[in-house]
Design a protein around this nucleic acid. Structure first.
Lengths: 221, 221
DNA sequence: ATAATTGTTTAACATTTGGTTAACCTTATA
DNA sequence: TATAAGGTTAACCAAATGTTAAACAATTAT
């Protein structure tokens, strides 16, 4: 877990500190938040690999935070684990519905929590890197695309579209998924995606993005 | 979770039956075992996508079963979830060390268990791999069909039809079932299915899909 | 602030493809 | 051997996607 970024969210500072201490021992880089609003802000700027999220917090609760974060495609691969004193079925189900990866009932047993995180990271861990065996690489920090040794800066939407497809090369993204992820709630015509695909093909070659008729598009080296 | 194979292991038949009932409702194909030895035998022959494994059983206990199964590379991607009355830390840790993906303390809350399985399946996509003993494999994420080492992208309806037949190889699907599953409410003529079967046979060989006259079709390696 | 530039979306049209049908052929079995 | 079920083929049509240019928005430079 060395070097991974972890965000801990709870309105009780004691719990946050205790968890932070334990995971720092594991070599993780820990951020802290004591309410939902801060949690969202920090999560979006830091893009941690793991978030421990208390359910019950004043104002914005954990469920809302989770729902909000899951909208953000950058945080799609982030593990979100709920911590809650409430063990009731409906409460847990609500957590999963909001997009959680696990739901841990307090009191938290740190050892077990570590194992849970390890399992989840191992199970789908490598997926976080958007590097690819093909000759296209993107760098979200620098906002650049490397292709055949050249570094390109491309427009925002094109970049986001490419980043999405590249986040899981070979996997087909349906048009509605693309729409939701790249455009959010904006209502746009149905040719817009095609036009952006066209431009990416213009830049990097026709074979970079493959059409799956009736379904969507996928990145193909 | 449609079509996924699930193995339930517990020495108490009541629990096995209760769980089996619930997951069969989800469209899963359920196998049962009442002791560790049988569990290993069945797991190795069936290669289920998910195993629910009781920890405490006479003779060979769940931990041993899990360790044994993890040796088998065919079962590397199988989800193993422990069920146990013992919630102690060391017991859970032992479970994770043995290679478990999750550890659920009894009494089991089925709804929550379903969500857990769903999350894990979605996270690392075993759900999408319908591997089969024949030389045809489909991948729903990539929308591809592998046949003799080649990856094919085939039209949507053909893909869905193949996916359906492949979801339970050897089982015969009646024409009306196929219609309902692939075409939904659309009203189409009675030769349409045949034409699609024809195209699949053209691609992958005549023996891939078998006709059962008067009944329907089935996939046959 | 204004112009120039760059990025995004739309709209119109072209092209491609997949799905369906219809007509006819073949085969199993009652 | 009659008959119903399924197989085959090619043609048609509709839907999905590709393409382009131009309008519109947002940024950046002057």
């Amino acid at each position: 877990m060395q070097g991974l970024k972890l965000l801990i969210v709870d309105d009780e500072p004691d719990i946050v500190d205790m968890l932070a201490y334990n995971f720092e021992q594991e070599g993780m880089t820990v951020s802290k938040a004591y309410n939902g609003t801060d949690a969202i802000r920090i999560a979006e700027s830091e893009v941690p690999q793991v978030i421990l999220l208390d359910v019950m917090m004043p104002d914005v609760d954990g469920i809302e935070v989770c729902e909000t974060l899951r909208q953000n495609s950058e945080l799609k691969n982030t593990l979100i684990i709920f911590l809650s004193a409430r063990g009731e079925d409906y409460s847990q189900v609500a957590g999963y519905k909001a997009g959680a990866d696990d739901y841990v009932v307090k009191p938290v047993r740190v050892k077990i929590l570590k194992h849970k995180i390890e399992v989840l990271l191992n199970r789908f861990g490598a997926k976080n890197e958007s590097v690819d065996e093909s000759n296209i690489t993107i760098n979200k920090q620098r906002y650049t695309v490397s292709h055949l040794g050249e570094e390109h800066i491309i427009p925002k939407k094109e970049f986001e579209l490419l980043a999405l497809l590249l986040s899981s090369p070979e996997r087909v993204y349906r048009r509605d998924e693309i729409l939701r992820d790249v455009w959010g709630d904006a209502v746009i015509g149905d040719r817009t995606i095609d036009v952006h695909v066209r431009k990416l093909r213009e830049r990097f070659g026709d074979n970079v993005i493959q059409t799956v008729k009736g379904v969507g598009y996928k990145f193909a080296g």
